[in-house]
Design a protein around this nucleic acid. Sequence first.
RNA 1: GGAGACGUCGCAUAGUCCGGCCGAGUGCACCACCCUGCUAAGGUGGAGUCCCCGCAAGGGGACCGAGGGUUCAAAUCCCUCCGUCUCCGCCA
Length: 421
Amino acid sequence: MIDPQLLRDSPDVIKASLRTRGADESLVDTALEADAARREAIAAFENLRAQQNAIGKDVAKASGAEKESLLATVKELAQQVKDASARVSEAEENAAGVLGALPNLVLEGVPAGGEENFVTLREVGMVPTFEGEPRDHLDLGESLGILDMERGVKVSGSRFYFLKGAGALMEMALMQLGMKVALENGFVPLIPPTLVKPEVMQGTGFLGEHAAEVYHLGDDDLYLTGTSEVALAGYHSDEIIDLSQGPLRYVGLSTCYRREAGSYGKDTRGIIRVHQFQKLEMFSYVDPSDAEAEHERMVSWQEQMLQSLGLAYRVIDVAAGDLGSSAARKYDVEAWVPSQGKYRELTSTSNCTTFQSRRLNVRHRPEKDASTEPVATLNGTLATTRWLVALLETHQQPDGSVLVPEVLQPFMGGLRVISAP
RNA sequence: GGAGACGUCGCAUAGUCCGGCCGAGUGCACCACCCUGCUAAGGUGGAGUCCCCGCAAGGGGACCGAGGGUUCAAAUCCCUCCGUCUCCGCCA
């Protein structure tokens, strides 16, 4: 949720942000009206309620005929209060709906436009070259016996797979490498629930434009999370947290579930786009003034990961129109995928400023004895199953084997090469 | 799965039977000041969150697990839900 105060004071700022996103700026006027209506309803209710409270005190003291006459007048008031209260609920619900539809304010410098309008911030590492056509990760994985798509489909349907042997080990090694980087930077590991309540899913904004992406268990009214960001953001909901010692950083490891509705025919080969995968996710709660710096730190940790794994990548500043509703700015790190001859997203890191925390009600006290303020939240990927795609393809050898990056070897029992069985 | 108890301001509790004087007492912790002077004790005062009006001072409203209901009036009565605990049964 955006800051309602900002909406009232400078609607033009919000309109400008909506334009950058290519969204409908008339939303702002609708929201302003709803907000005004809400406050009007509240004022009306509170006046009536104050009267009722005052007379109620007299009723308690009075007796006999005096009491009877007081009761008669206040009885009527009671009905008015009730009606006014109903109007408040209605107005608040409406205002919350309209206000909630406004996406986060885009940060200064974010490229305007849609998906294709991203700006490349830097390209790092040598794009690998091959004699002849490089094999793709599925081809490699199957021939090495470490990825079994066929049986995944047999057991669970399309976009499911088994990782086997060194494939399974490599996924876990990636997670452990990421965990090591996280621990070095003060992150507290969390293994979160992957089923969450509707209000948490709502609070993180995934029931908006991503609603069709989310698995829902109807019998229990629970949602399967597509990222541990959801649970990590909900972790401190309705709390006043202490940031005086610096950011609160969590790293969550979880299985992620995505329906991939609407992506039929896209990335159907291999494990680029699947219904279930592992992800290690960073999540920081920070003082809003520190958010942009934390964002840069998160990218740098992600880059550190890719560099240590010997992957070529680029960092892009995602265009406003391609941001989720919660993000004020988003950087993607995309690794070179040889079989496709292009960069594909491996990580994403978003600065959600105070947007998410407002919905989830996470606050802090900037100064001792100061009043509370929403915190800023940021999230970013440290490792996912998809990384195996870039790793297998980048480190494939002419004989069909794959070299294990040195940093992963300790987590794979010292294995240096994955060879066909 | 069956039976019961409970859910109050950071923590621990009082209040709920007998609705109004309870946004709410007490203890601990916390903050400020005083006293004393030493690793303690005592005294005084302060302090919740959210919202609305207001430049401000200030005023008003809401919140006693959540949501409904009864009533002029609900922490207190009724209903539903959620959660915690205890006992029994069942199963790893």
